[in-house]
Design a protein around this nucleic acid. Structure first.
Length: 491
DNA sequence: GAGTTTGAAACT
DNA sequence: CAGTTTCAAACTC
């Protein structure tokens, strides 16, 4: 039995065996930086790792040995420590092996996982690079593997090469699913198949009685690291019905922090709709605060909710309380769903990434990663994804007739132009009027003035010639603006 | 609520 | 990669 397995944690939440609960260390990050430390005290070792925007969760497994059904004992082993290949960290799991139902979701970038797993090889060979595996086992995104499913054979190969002192850790087959959404957190699974784990997680959390905060709540109201934030340590009463596949449950109170729900991938694991209309109790001292999360139900009829047409599916959520028909986006069709996810990722590795990035452009809050392609809406209706997201169109957009731009920067559409139905560009013309353009324009005007003087024209005529030349220059500038915006323009 | 419009996603 | 079709949401009446 490992040291950690000897720890007994008591919570007040119904958490069926194999289910997932994110935790925050009650006193901040553990002392080992990214890892769960070798805590030997009776205090629970809740882990939360932050690396960039990623957060690590510990996934706990109840040890069904408590005779009191309302109180569970959980054991946890630090597989993350093992993954990061620090010999001293192996000690936790070395003695007792790997608890058979242990599962961890671990947050690292693909590259980090690649390096980490590579480092497991005793000979340092690259054969354990996720990159090499992912060519046939998972998905690729450019040169970076972003998903990996280790088959039992590959797991065995991996185990063979693991240093002796850690080899017994992997007596139980290991599956690693990393960075499925490219840039999202990494999930490390043990024992269960990759399909089973999300299923069990989602089954647990889909139970109607589960109450958890939704992403939007946190993102709208709270800064995860804001000092004194009310949500920094939320006490939540969470209860869930045990799914059929689980036999153990218990009452647990979990400390949650908002950032646990910010990643897209987590929405896959913790479907937002599972918390829809459900009450969450947040206590601060003696106060209790309730909130609800409403999710827009989809109405899909033909896509089986397994294509990106379906908002729920596109958001990494399960359908719940939707009006869809023939829906496969639920826990009863996990296999079909996972196939559909894979198909989407094959088509577009970034399919499940948020469309609205956080990158700021000037005063614009964010930007659409792909840009819109609107043609008839002027980007002033909710058909336009930029407009719907309440952001300006940018040069990334390929829209036609865009009006969703900063009028202080861009040109306005005059009534005359309205009559001729001239499309306006989405990008700021200032970027086109470079110093070279200005100098060239001035050169043309000077040349025209010199020509007028040389020809002996009167001042009024010379002025007219110069103005006409200026008009020509402006026409050229405007043409270049519209050309850069891929907009048809007839002057 | 039915029908139309729209643009993203999917397909060819 | 461009053109077309499919799809579901947004919109209009």
């Amino acid at each position: 039995m490992s040291e950690l397995e000897g720890h007994e944690y008591t919570y007040r939440i119904a958490l069926p065996e194999g289910s997932v609960a994110p935790f925050q260390h009650p006193h901040g990050s553990p002392g080992m930086g990214n890892l769960v430390s070798h805590q030997t005290s009776a205090e629970p070792v809740y882990s939360r790792m932050e690396e960039d925007e990623y957060t690590t969760y510990r996934i706990l497994h109840p040890v069904a040995r408590d005779p009191i059904p309302q109180v569970a004992h959980f054991s946890s082993a630090a597989y993350s420590e093992y993954l990061l290949a620090q010999p001293s960290h192996y000690q936790h799991v070395q003695y007792g092996g790997w608890p058979s139902h242990e599962a961890f979701q671990y947050s690292m970038s693909s590259g980090d996982v690649c390096r980490t797993v590579s480092s497991l090889g005793s000979d340092g060979a690259d054969v354990y690079s996720l990159d090499s595996y992912s060519t046939h086992q998972g998905f690729r995104h450019g040169n970076q593997p972003h998903a990996l499913l280790l088959s039992p054979h590959d797991q065995h190969k991996m185990v063979e090469k693991i240093p002796a002192q850690t080899s017994n850790i992997c007596q139980v087959p290991v599956q690693v699913v990393c960075d499925v959404n490219v840039g999202g957190p990494v999930m490390v699974l043990n024992h269960c198949s990759p399909d089973q784990i999300p299923h069990s997680m989602m089954s647990d959390l889909n139970a109607e009685s589960v109450s958890m905060p939704a992403q939007s709540f946190f993102s709208e109201h709270h800064s995860p690291h804001e000092p004194g934030s009310d949500i920094g340590h939320i006490e939540m009463i969470v209860s869930a019905e045990a799914p059929q596949t689980h036999s153990t449950s218990a009452e647990v109170t979990v400390s949650l922090s908002p950032e646990h729900y910010v990643s897209q991938f987590n929405q896959t694991l913790y479907p937002t709709q599972a918390f829809e209309h459900e009450e969450v109790v947040q206590t601060k001292g003696c106060e209790s605060v309730k909130w609800e999360k409403s999710k827009r139900p989809c109405n899909c009829t033909k896509s089986q909710c397994l294509k990106l047409y379906c908002e729920c599916f596109a958001n990494g959520e399960f359908c719940s309380s939707c009006k869809c028909t023939n829906c496969f986006n639920n826990t009863e069709h996990v296999f079909e769903r996972s196939q559909a996810v894979k198909a989407c990722l094959d088509r577009n590795p970034g399919a499940f990434r948020p469309k609205i990035g956080s990158r700021k452009q000037g005063n614009v809050k964010g930007c659409h990663t792909k840009g819109c392609n609107c043609k008839r809406s002027g980007c002033l209706k909710n058909y336009c994804e930029c407009y719907e997201a309440k952001i300006m169109c940018t040069s990334t957009c390929k829209c036609v007739g865009c009006r969703n731009y900063d009028e202080g920067c861009d040109m306005k559409k005059s009534s005359e132009q309205d009559r001729h139905d001239i499309y306006f560009p989405t990008r700021c013309p200032v970027s086109v009027i470079t110093r070279d353009v200005v100098e060239a324009t001035c050169g043309c005007l000077l040349a025209q003035a010199e020509e007028a003087q040389k020809d002996g024209h009167i001042a009024a005529h010379a002025e007219r010639m110069i103005l006409e030349e200026f008009g020509q220059c402006l026409t050229q500038i405007v043409r270049s603006i519209f050309k850069s915006s891929r907009v048809q323009f007839n002057l």
